[in-house]
Design a binder for these strands. Structure first.
Length: 484
RNA sequence: GGCGGCGUACCCAAGUGGCUAAGGGAGAGGUCUGCAAAACCUUUAUGCAGCGGUUCGAAUCCGCUCGCCGCCUCCA
């Protein structure tokens, strides 16, 4: 497997520290507000990586944290007039709800910063002892100049950053780039007892403490959004490696941003869409498909139109699955092979290899999706050739199995076509009931038997206007939700 | 200003040295159909922002130019 490593700036062969085992840590969210689609991308991308590594036979230990104490949470608590831990608790619950709706699995461990205060204090003390950190007036800062490799992840050096001069002014720091490991708390703020008085952890130290505790000094993959590269992950490396004297994470993996009108989606620009809002308009599978149809490191432009295209693609997939079911259910009295059977069979033989090949190459989900649709077309073409008999059924069943396997890797295409159709109904034609459609269908069937085409077409048109499309086949008329 | 990335058809998007540049959407034409829909076929990039260079050979490597974006402050 190849994996792009931000640290080296290259795709590298993936070799875990312990053969057959992968330990990965992904920075989760700070729980002070609703999650937007950008958070969903990160969650979905790393969920897929984790699933795929497991599919590849690795024993995966996946840790994703919650930052449940920080300035933003404290500010939000003040604004809303509620205790800080009620804020964090509320948004943790909301996060779980969003992830469940999105179809993102839970991590093996989901630790919280406030559950690791003793570990955080321990590391901070260790860093002071080793001369990497200093205490001033109840604050403890990491001294960036003491760590020779500082900047190795984000590819910048301390002097350049100082020239940029957008760092906060803080008289107490020896160097403006120094960052807080521990912050003295003000009156009324959440606080824990420490050797430096009442205080709370800085932002970066929690991830060092939690990854060290749950995964050890050196582990395999550390992930998060690209905006965490600096300063968060840079600082994590500095404090972790200074503390343990060992390499921290081996592969640094970062997902790209979601943009709106070419601009990064962010809270400050106000151009964000919450997961909840989007799931009120689109099915979670469409959201997942949309996000996986672009490589995880590329920026991806968000729009309703893109989601609609995702729906159309998914619909094409399920329409083919339905066709498979119909074909298998048919009576196969004669043996007849379609003329392009060989080509089809050959494609089936290479299919999983091609999908895993794409995923092995830095999780190229977009290419894997492309392979799936190649198979879809080949399958439709094969069925157009009107094959029949046990051998044809076996071949189609094989194709169905392969599609299912590929879908399970990507965590898409994993339900029944009827369920997909029903899900679409909720969004596209919520006022139409299945009973209504079926009664209209029966009415139309009578008209068709009488060859009253005008009446039949009127009913078709009526249903079409309500968002339902009819398909007349030999076995009868079926219907599906129109995507618009 | 420093660092990094991107620019592939009408739109989205894969492809990072070598068969006819995946796949999806949209458009046009066709097969099928009572008519449709779905499906399939044909069609839309002799060219991958532009200009040079390296190479037997480049969308892919190097240089320059233009355009867009990100990070350098909290941010998935």
């Amino acid at each position: 497997m190849k994996l792009y490593n931000t640290l080296s700036g290259k795709k590298e062969d993936f070799v875990p520290v312990m053969p057959g085992q992968v330990r990965m840590y992904v920075c989760g969210i700070t729980v002070y507000d609703h999650c937007h689609i950008g958070h969903a991308r990160s969650a979905i991308v790393f969920d897929i990586m984790r699933r795929y590594l497991a599919y590849r036979g690795f024993k995966v230990t996946f840790v994703k944290n919650f930052t449940d104490i920080d300035d933003k949470i404290i500010n939000r608590a003040k604004q809303e007039g509620m205790p800080w831990d009620e804020v964090s608790g509320k948004y943790i619950l909301e996060y779980y709800r969003d992830m469940e709706h999105l179809g993102v699995g839970k991590a093996d461990m989901e630790p919280r910063a406030t559950e690791h205060i003793p570990e955080i204090i321990g590391i901070t003390e260790g860093l002071i002892d080793k001369g990497y950190a200093y205490e001033i007036g109840g604050d403890v800062y990491f001294q960036v100049e003491k760590f020779a490799d500082y900047g190795k992840l984000s590819k910048r050096d301390i002097d350049d950053m100082l020239a940029g001069a957008r760092v906060e002014v803080n008289e107490r720091k020896r160097n403006p780039m120094d960052f807080a490991l521990w912050k003295a708390s003000k009156e009324g703020e959440p606080a824990w007892e420490s050797p430096w008085g009442q205080g709370r952890p800085g932002w970066h130290i929690e991830c060092s403490a939690m990854s060290l505790k749950h995964l050890g000094e050196t582990f395999d993959i550390h992930g998060g959004g690209a905006d965490l590269i600096f300063p968060h992950h840079e600082n994590e490396i500095a404090q972790s490696e200074a503390y343990s004297g060992k390499p921290f994470a081996r592969y640094w993996v970062h997902n790209g941003f979601i943009t709106v009108d070419k601009e990064k989606m962010s809270k400050s620009l106000g151009n964000f869409f919450t997961i909840k809002d989007i799931l009120g308009k689109f099915d979670a599978e469409a959201v997942r498909f949309f996000l996986l149809s672009t490589h995880y490191r590329s920026p991806i432009e968000f729009s309703d139109e893109q989601l609609r295209e995702a729906e159309t693609s998914i619909d094409r997939y399920y329409a083919t699955v339905l066709r498979i079911h119909d074909f298998i259910a048919q009576e196969h009295t004669t043996e007849k092979s379609a003329h392009d059977e060989k080509v089809f069979e050959e494609l089936l033989g290479r299919f999983i290899e091609r999908v895993t090949g794409a995923m092995d190459d830095d999780f190229n989900t977009a290419l894997a999706v492309g392979h799936i649709f190649e198979l879809i077309r080949a399958l439709n073409k094969y069925l157009d050739g009107k094959p029949s008999g046990a051998q044809a059924v076996a071949l189609v069943q094989k194709a169905a199995g392969l599609l299912k396997e590929a879908g399970s890797i990507l965590n898409i295409f994993n339900r029944m076509p009827e369920d997909w159709n029903r899900a679409l109904m909720r969004f596209k034609c919520p006022d139409v009931t299945e009973e209504f459609i079926i009664s209209k269908l029966q009415e139309r069937q009578k008209a068709r038997e009488l060859k009253d085409w005008t009446a039949a077409d009127t009913i078709r048109k009526e249903l079409d206007e309500k968002g339902v499309v009819l398909e007349d086949k030999k076995e009868g008329t079926s219907w599906k939700v129109k995507i618009f």
